[in-house]
């Protein structure tokens, strides 16, 4: 059982929805993002998604792309991101960390070496946007063998015929992308998301968490109410981009978390 499995089991026992929050590692600099990360569990974040900066984030909108660029300009590397997770683990041993990003920096490091380092750093799961089930042999299967959850995205274009393949090697949770599009785009609609989540839940026992297009505590509540939880990314990253102080960002995160938890 990974930290992710344990966290969802605990939430289920409490009858609570999960609040997942995304920040970009190293944005705007390593110290600030580590301070933010360390404050997230106290603000009500159940699972931390830690973004791996990449020069060419094809599935992300301008907000996350700019964050990645700020991090890279500040000298963030994959090693520094792993070190950041390790530093976080010194103060928190239970909150799951999911690394989210693109395949090239991982492939460049070497899959085996990366998996070993990630595990040792206290990483629990991976979301790699440009690795569909067709490329499972690359990282998904080795990751599971190394004891890391590989969390797959399901989307509005994932039809019933394709769904079993998407779910096949997924573990931890299923990340349902609420809209066709990029991060930080149009708003997710609970009326459309609900039936889709139900469709996925009929095919798997894993928790289904909804992300993309959730920006307010109210939206967090309505979307979480039709799923097992929700993810907020761009809305938080935007505050970092505006240079807001960490305590202020954590207050906003706490409001979003309260929204999701009230569902």
């Amino acid at each position: 059982m990974t930290r992710i499995d344990a966290k969802f089991a605990a939430l289920k026992a409490e009858g609570k929805k999960a609040f997942v929050a995304y920040i970009m590692a190293g944005d705007p600099d390593l110290e600030t993002s580590l301070e933010l990360m360390k404050g997230m569990p106290g603000a009500g974040v159940d699972v931390i998604e830690l973004g791996l900066p990449f020069t060419d984030p094809m599935a992300d909108g301008p907000t996350i792309q700019a964050a990645g660029q700020r991090a890279l300009d500040g000298g963030q590397t994959l090693q520094k991101t792993l070190d950041m997770a390790r530093a976080f683990r010194e103060t928190d041993t239970t909150t799951p960390i999911v690394l989210m990003g693109y395949y090239n920096p991982i492939y460049n490091r070497g899959v085996d070496r990366f998996l070993q380092d990630a595990r040792e750093a206290g990483i629990d799961g991976l979301i790699v946007v440009d690795l569909p089930p067709e490329e499972d042999a690359e990282l998904c299967i080795p990751a599971r063998a190394a004891g890391l959850n590989f969390i797959r995205l399901a989307t509005p274009t994932t039809d019933d015929k394709r769904l079993p393949r998407v779910l096949q090697n997924t573990s931890g949770f299923v990340y349902y992308v609420s809209v066709t599009g990029i991060t930080g785009g149009q708003a997710a609609q609970a009326g459309e998301v609900g039936p889709e989540v139900a469709r996925i839940k009929a095919a798997t026992d894993l928790p289904v968490i909804v992300g993309f297009g959730i920006t307010t505590p109210d939206a967090a509540r309505t979307i979480a109410s039709v799923a097992d939880g929700c993810v907020v990314g761009s809305a938080i990253v935007k505050l970092v981009g505006e240079g807001r102080p960490v305590p202020e960002i954590l207050t906003q995160i706490a409001a979003l978390a309260a929204g999701a938890h009230s569902a």
């Binding site: 094809m58 599935a59 395949y103 946007v129 440009d130 690795l131 569909p132 089930p133 067709e134 490329e135 797959r152 995205l153 399901a154 989307t155 509005p156 274009t157 994932t158 039809d159 394709r162 998407v166 992308v177 066709t180 599009g181």
Partner: peptide
Amino acid sequence: GGRFVSETLMPL
């Protein structure tokens, strides 16, 4: 080669 794209594009 291969097909390194997001799930949204994969069916297309």
